[in-house]
Write a protein that binds this DNA or RNA. Structure first.
Length: 472
RNA sequence: GGCGGGGUAGCCAAGUGGUAAGGUCGCGGUCUGCAAAACCGCUAUUCGCGGGUUCGAUUCCCGCCCCCGCCUCCA
């Protein structure tokens, strides 16, 4: 198995920290809960979901942590504007995040630590103290504490930045008079009026932690000084992950992360989807257009994580059609597998799933999902052909279903089969059957139209008419 | 300016030093009362552009163009 490591900019063979235990520690940067996360954010979480699920398919036990940033400039501003306490303000977006993640079938991390948790604030303060005692941090005249990047020679290695070349984009105000170096970043931000009642005591001044230190504190607290994989969007490479390395390694003296994996952006009209640009959709926005969570999951999953993905409604339709193809295939296989199960003894434990290399091997190669799906669809076409020719027996159908079960632990794309046909539709279908028996084609077609308007599809097969839900 | 990612058919998208997976759309066919689904066939002599290496390059090297992102709190 190999992954593209941002640190080396190379594909590297994956070797866990602890190969004997087959367990892997993953830290993933989670949402800042100042508004509902958009689907660009979720692209990153789906990529991380794919990573976790594939590692698990390959027999690793994954311990994954995803932090939730519930205190920063934006959350404080939002709470002020809403005139509610910070915790109350962020609670709604935490809930929304878990709701959306569930809609997208994203597997829950083992822990979701929050930055405001006193346990972690204490740890952040301890780490900052350690950095000060090592002269890697200093308190400036504004009472805030900053990391001294010139004392950490590896600073800039992850982003491959030459610090002397850093240019300000003017996006962020610099307190240049207080800091020794323009690139020094805040570890502890001294309280000011804007912060209202958001503050914690510290040895330096009342205030709040900087953004970066929370991840260092929570990652090392929950996963230890060294972790296997750390993920996030490419926009986190600098400064966030760079800062995390400096802080964590500054305190522990150990290599913080073995593999850095970063996900490319979701684009809209060829531009990065971002709150600041206003060109974003949320999960409910997509659901409101009558697409389902799994359709969105497929649309966000199907492109390799390091390639920018342009979000379009046309793409959503392609996702819908592709999933429909999978659904049809599974339905046919199940029917064949079921049919003979009545006559045959249940499959024995010695029966092995069909040998279908390709899918998992593709994912081994830096999560090459496009190639993996290619194998899936090739398999679908081949077996559909066999079924058309009546050449697929129940044992083979079962074996294929077993194979699907296995790869679906990674994809999680099966329609949740609560297929309940509404009585209205059943009634119309019955009437249509009667019309067809009388060869009243006009009436039959009319009824088909009405069923179609209810989002159901009628198919006339040798075994009679069948009803299929149109999408979802 | 520095550092990255990308540029393959109408659209989405794999891929390899030997002559281009897959999805979607469109067209034709088989099946069907007609459809749908499924299957079959067609749809890139060509992989941003120009050089070079090679018997042979989309794949390696050099130069260039275009798009997107990061450059101090955005996944």
């Amino acid at each position: 198995m190999r992954f593209f490591n941002t640190y080396s900019r190379k594909l590297e063979e994956f070797e866990p920290l602890d190969p004997a235990a087959r367990s892997i520690k993953i830290y993933t940067c989670g949402p800042t809960v100042y508004s509902r996360a958009h689907i660009g954010n979720f692209r990153a979480y789906i990529f991380e979901d794919l990573l976790q699920r594939h590692l698990e398919l390959r027999g690793y036990k994954v311990h994954r942590v995803m932090n939730i940033t519930d205190v920063d400039d934006k959350t404080i501003r939002g709470a002020r504007e809403a005139r509610v306490p910070l915790a109350k303000f962020t609670r709604q977006f935490k809930q929304a995040f878990f709701e959306d993640a569930k809609t997208l079938r994203i597997k829950r991390a083992d822990e979701f630590p929050c930055a405001t948790d006193q346990r972690y604030v204490d740890r952040m303060i301890a780490m900052i103290g350690a950095l000060i005692s090592k002269r890697l941090a200093y308190q400036a005249d504004d009472k805030s504490v900053y990391f001294r990047i010139n004392k950490f020679p590896n600073y800039g290695k992850l982003a491959h930045f030459d610090l002397t070349q850093l240019q300000s984009t003017g996006r962020v105000k610099h307190d240049e008079y207080d800091k020794e170096h323009i690139g020094d970043f805040a570890l502890w931000k001294a309280w000011d009026e804007e912060d209202g009642d958001v503050k914690w005591d510290s040895p330096w001044a009342p205030g709040r932690p900087g953004w970066h230190i929370e991840c260092s504190a929570m990652a090392t607290a929950l996963l230890g000084d060294q972790i296997d994989i750390h993920c996030g969007g490419v926009d986190n490479i600098f400064p966030h992950h760079e800062a995390e390395i400096a802080q964590s390694e500054g305190v522990t003296g150990e290599k913080f992360v073995r593999y850095w994996l970063h996900c490319a952006h979701l684009l809209v009209d060829g531009q990065k989807m971002a709150k600041s640009l206003g060109n974003f959709y949320t999960v409910p926005d997509v659901l409101a257009k009558s697409y389902s969570g799994r359709e969105l999951r497929y649309a966000l999953l199907r492109v390799h994580y390091r390639v920018p993905l342009n979000f379009t409604w046309k793409g959503m339709n392609e996702a819908r059609e592709s999933l429909g193809r999978i659904d049809e295939w599974l339905a046919r296989l199940s029917k064949i597998a079921r049919k003979e199960k009545v006559q045959r003894p249940a499959p024995t434990a010695t029966q092995r799933p069909i040998e279908k290399p390709g899918f998992e091997e593709a994912l081994d190669d830096d999560l090459n999902i496009s190639a993996a799906l290619g194998f899936l669809f090739e398999t679908i076409r081949e077996t559909n052909r066999a079924m058309d020719e009546n050449k697929l027996d129940a044992a083979s159908a079962s074996a294929l279903l077993d194979w699907w079960q296995r790869i679906n632990t990674v994809l999680d794309l099966e329609a949740h089969a609560e297929i309940v046909v509404p009585t209205e539709v059943t009634q119309l279908a019955k009437e249509r059957e009667n019309a067809r028996r009388e060869k009243n084609w006009k009436r039959s077609d009319e009824l088909r139209e009405r069923i179609s308007a209810l989002r159901w599809e009628v198919r006339d097969t040798k075994d009679g008419s069948q009803l299929t839900p149109r999408s979802g």
